[in-house]
Design a protein around this nucleic acid. Structure first.
Length: 589
RNA sequence: GAGCCCAUAGUUAAAUGGAUAUAACAGGAGCCUUCUAAGCUCUCGUUCUAGGUUCGAUUCCUAGUGGGCUCACCA
């Protein structure tokens, strides 16, 4: 909507011979609402920008006066400030323009059609069965879900896909860890028996049991040569579907997947297609071997590698010397499945930045094997969660925080705030969960998507200031106002009469509301939901300032009508923006 | 050793090459007989170093310093 307002100004500028115009926002509202920087123009005519601005402002003022534009225009005043020509918009006109404009579009306001007819696969989540679902996965899941919604909002047909490593060395390490006890090794029949005994235990206990086994297995693998051999053998047994491990393998895998499902549900995510490495490895081997015959892959030290070094990248192993595929080899088959099962315009892999080098090589190899994938694979680099003042989390060292632990820590913090409050109104358990989830998601999404998030378990997730609960709070406040104002609110969200005047707080809100579509567009263009997070925070701040300064229910009828419409639209945009972040709102808190 | 990424108040983060670098948290001072104080208002405090490009650099380039990640049969 801001673009349409800019367009009006562009028309005016065109009439004085200025063809291309870029606008910006002045640092504060005393200096105007929209700025036109004159640097480029000054360069063209070889004059100093401030001089050009002064002249241009004078010319524009004449145009507006002469052509009687002022009557129908949003522009109230044009002034030069140094090298800028600043436009002051008329408050009442702006209110009518923005409020009626948004009301007309309804829920479509802020959506786009750029992606119409284009399918996008977004791969995220990607935990490894039998291993812990840690904070990094949590962040990835939250980021991915939001990116999905941002793309859907832009008209794309989005498919959520998840790719999970249910075969490979990490699984072998878990299996080995399950075998080791203080007294030595036990058979898989014994392991299976102990797992059967656990069938009534909670999912969390079951998953913790597997997590410990991984830690034991991985440590043994690093320290002990015999363990390495045993793990390598187990890896082969998994690929060969060896009967002796099937019970344990299937039970453990099932526990994990069931557990992941509870997390997806809790965070409001779901997937259209779950891929598993167990369905990609056979075809992966074939693809590498076919590629080798075409000269794409090469043999080296008994393994099959892709010579990335020929493309200023690095070499990577696709088939190990035993003939089993590595992650790379399997991923070729995954890509093939993506492109046969779907018709993706783009495949977006939401993965941490530590894998940037890996994806560079993989995509290059893919281009050779399947030329039609060229330019369609995209690694969306996610920053990772860094424990504050500590080293990176490692499931092997055991200093991991699981998604569950974090969720309950945040929930505790929120319950504490509720207890400290004086006016106690009923807050349901469901509301507390929604607030918890909002706090967590907002904390993960408010920084640039590629930026590492420093995370302090002590401070946990903030519930004041720039936080999820702060955002939900304004929705609750507005809902309360609307409920109380209902008896005279005629429900139609358009205003027929121009308000007599508009406060600076109202104007700030109007201008922000007008910007929303540009924000959602920027988010999809940059693959970065944080723009929306920042916007919702700004909108919330502006609303709270308005709330403190401008009563809604206790003012004369015409002002009241405008303000009711305004806050109801703020609520609409707030809910819409938060929904794109995957955050649900509450009516009361 | 090579490649990629990063460096902004005490802390965590913003800023299409443009106006007085913006917020939150923490610290200090105020505001609830009036629509929810998880709030509002005021206050203290910042661009790693050295060059360069530019009318103008937190932003672009070069070098340095300090961090993170990756670099062969793990994912």
């Amino acid at each position: 909507m801001m673009q349409q307002i800019y367009k009006q100004l562009e028309e005016a500028l065109k009439s004085v011979g200025i063809e291309r115009a870029e606008f910006s926002t002045p640092p504060n509202s005393d200096m105007g609402d929209i700025a036109f920087p004159c640097f480029a123009l000054a360069k063209e005519v070889g004059k100093n920008p401030a001089e050009v601005a002064t002249e241009l402002a004078a010319t524009l003022n004449e145009v507006y006066a002469k052509e009687d534009l002022r009557e129908s225009s949003l522009v109230k005043e044009i002034k030069a400030f140094g090298p800028y020509v600043n436009f002051f918009l008329d408050g009442p006109e702006l209110a009518s323009y923005v409020l009626n404009g948004i009301s007309q579009q309804g829920d479509a306001y802020g959506t786009h059609a750029d992606g119409k007819g284009k399918q996008v696969l977004i791969e995220f989540g990607c935990p490894n069965p039998m291993k812990i679902f840690h904070l990094g996965h949590l962040k990835n899941l939250i980021t991915g879900e939001s990116v999905v919604r941002v793309f859907e909002n832009a008209g794309y047909d989005v498919k959520r896909v998840n790719y999970q490593g249910d075969v490979g060395m990490h699984i072998a390490k878990v299996l080995y860890g399950l075998q080791i006890t203080d007294d030595g090794q036990r058979s898989f029949a014994d392991v299976a028996k102990s797992m059967t005994e656990m069938k009534d235990a909670s999912l969390a206990e079951k998953v913790a049991f597997l997590g410990k086994a991984y830690a034991r297995g991985a440590n043994a693998y690093e320290e002990d040569e015999n363990a390495q051999k045993a793990v390598a053998r187990l890896n082969e047994m998994v690929y060969e579907h060896d009967p002796s491990i099937q019970d344990v393998y299937k039970t453990g895998r099932g526990w994990s997947l069931e557990y992941f499902d509870t997390i997806y549900k809790k965070l409001g995510s779901h997937f259209d297609r779950m891929y598993f490495e167990s369905e990609t490895y056979e075809r992966g081997v074939q693809l590498v071997e076919e590629g080798k015959e075409k000269g794409i892959f090469k043999e080296s030290d008994g393994a099959i590698i892709f010579p990335g070094s020929e493309y200023e990248l690095h070499d990577r192993v696709f088939l190990n010397s035993k003939g089993y595929p590595t992650y790379e080899g399997k991923e070729l088959a995954l890509a093939e499945m993506h492109f046969t099962e779907f018709n993706p315009y783009q495949v977006i892999h939401v993965v941490g930045k530590e894998q940037a080098g890996y994806f560079d090589v993989l995509f290059k190899a893919l281009e050779q094997v399947m030329p039609h994938t060229k330019g369609r694979e995209y690694h969306l680099v996610g920053g990772y969660l860094q424990l504050k003042g500590d080293q990176k989390m490692s499931s092997r060292k055991g200093n991991v925080i699981s998604g569950d632990e974090l969720l309950s820590a945040v929930q505790k913090g929120i319950q504490k705030i509720l207890q400290e409050r004086e006016d106690e109104h009923d807050i349901s358990e469901e509301t507390i969960e929604t607030i918890t989830s909002a706090a967590l998601k907002y904390a993960m999404l408010k920084s640039d998507v590629s930026q590492d998030v420093a995370f302090d378990m002590e401070e946990s997730v903030s519930t004041t200031g720039d936080s999820g609960p702060y955002l939900l709070y304004i929705v609750a406040r507005i809902s309360s106002i609307l409920e109380k104002g209902q008896e005279t609110n005629n429900k139609k969200q358009t205003i027929s009469n121009l308000p007599s005047s508009i406060t600076s707080e109202e104007k700030k809100l109007l201008l922000l509301l007008a910007t929303y579509p540009e924000v959602t567009k920027r988010a999809v263009q940059t693959y970065d939901p944080s723009h929306i997070a920042k916007y919702t925070f700004e909108l919330a701040q502006a609303f709270n300032a308005f709330y403190a300064a401008c009563p809604v229910l206790t003012v004369e009828e015409d002002v009241r009508a405008v303000r009711l419409t305004l806050v109801s639209l703020v609520r609409q945009i707030m809910i819409s923006g938060l929904r794109l972040l995957g955050i649900e709102t509450v009516e009361k808190m």
